[in-house]
C-alpha cells in the first residue's frame, strides 16, 4: 500500500444542521485499489459524511479533491459525473423486475422503434457480474424478489460498478446477511478494490472490516479521531478510538489547541 495520491480527499469538511454540528473539520481519503473502512458509533457522522460525497447535501466548509483537483459536489448528478456510486443500505432495487432490468434502470439501451435492446443489456450485465466473479445467480432473468439478501447486494454493487465508477461507497452491506452471504459480499468488496476501484465501506462490524479493509477511519461525535492502517492495528485499538478517541476540536467552542 503505497502513499499514492488519494482519488478522493476531504479536507476539513464541516456540516451543521441548525445549531447541531454533525461534522467538525473532518479529513477523509479514499485511494484507488484500497478499501477504506469508515467506522464510528451511531451518530458519529458517518452518514452525514457520505451524503456530502454523494451530493445529497453539501458541506458548510472544507474542500473536496478528486484526482488531486478541487471539485464541488452539489447534487447526486455531480457525484455520479465524477464516477462516485453509493450503494445504500436499502439497495433500492425493483422487486418485480429482473436483474438486467434493475441494473439498467433509468439507463436502458434501445434499438429501432424504441424497443429495449435486451440482448445487449443482458450481455453487459453478464460481463459485469462475471468480472466481479458473482457466480451465485441462477439467471440474470430472475426477478429480484427471488434473490437472497447477498445476491441482492451483489446486484446492487454490480449496478454501481457497471457505470464505469471509480469510487464505490457501500453503506452497511452486510448488516442484514447471514454468515455465508456476508462472506460472499466481503469477497466482492475485496475484488472491487483489487480491480483498481476505490472502495469506502461503512460498517459496524469490526470483524468484517479487518477482513477486507486496508485503512480504517474512525469518526467520533462528528470528528475524525484516527486513521489506522489495518495491518498495523487491532480491534481493541479501533474500539478504543470509537468510544474514547481523542477529540481535536470542541464543537461550538473557539479553536484552542488541545494538544
Amino acid at each position: 500500500m503505497g502513499e499514492a495520491t488519494p482519488l478522493l480527499e476531504l479536507r476539513g469538511v464541516s456540516k451543521r444542521f441548525g445549531a447541531v454540528e454533525a461534522l467538525t473539520k473532518v479529513d477523509f481519503t479514499a485511494r484507488l485499489g484500497e478499501v477504506m473502512a469508515l467506522v464510528g458509533d451511531n451518530g458519529a457522522g458517518k452518514s452525514t459524511l457520505i451524503k456530502g460525497i454523494a451530493g445529497i447535501h453539501t458541506y458548510n466548509e472544507g474542500q473536496i479533491f478528486f484526482d488531486a483537483k478541487p471539485v464541488t459536489i452539489n447534487s447526486p448528478r455531480d457525484s455520479a459525473a465524477l464516477g462516485i456510486e453509493v450503494v445504500y443500505q436499502d439497495l433500492a432495487l425493483a422487486d418485480n423486475l429482473d436483474v438486467v432490468a434493475n441494473m439498467f434502470l433509468g439507463h436502458e439501451r434501445t434499438q429501432a422503434m424504441g424497443m429495449l435492446d435486451e440482448d445487449s443489456m443482458e450481455r453487459t450485465c453478464i460481463e459485469t457480474l462475471q468480472s466481479l466473479s458473482v457466480t451465485t445467480l441462477r439467471s440474470v432473468r430472475q426477478e429480484i424478489s427471488g434473490l437472497s439478501g447477498g445476491q441482492r447486494q451483489a446486484v446492487a454493487v454490480a449496478k454501481a460498478v457497471m457505470r464505469n465508477s471509480r469510487l464505490v461507497i457501500l453503506d452497511e452491506p452486510t448488516a442484514a446477511l447471514g454468515v455465508a452471504q456476508t462472506r460472499q459480499v466481503l469477497d466482492l468488496v475485496r475484488r472491487l478494490a483489487d480491480k483498481g476501484l476505490a472502495v469506502v465501506l461503512i460498517s459496524h462490524n469490526l470483524h468484517d472490516i479487518f477482513e477486507v479493509a486496508d485503512r480504517i477511519t474512525v469518526l467520533r461525535l462528528g470528528q475524525n479521531v484516527h486513521e489506522f492502517m489495518a495491518q498495523q492495528t487491532n480491534p481493541q485499538e479501533v474500539v478504543h478510538a470509537i468510544t474514547a478517541g481523542k477529540m481535536l476540536h470542541v464543537p461550538g467552542m473557539a479553536e484552542v489547541e488541545i494538544q
Binding site: D119, E122, I126, L129, S133, T135, L137, R138, S139, R141
Partner: peptide, 14 residues
C-alpha cells in the same frame, strides 16, 4: 472460482 461463468437461462427477452 474466477473461471465459473454466470449461468444464464438461454431464453432471451423480446
Amino acid at each position: 472460482d474466477q473461471s465459473q461463468a454466470v449461468p444464464v437461462v438461454p431464453a432471451r427477452a423480446g
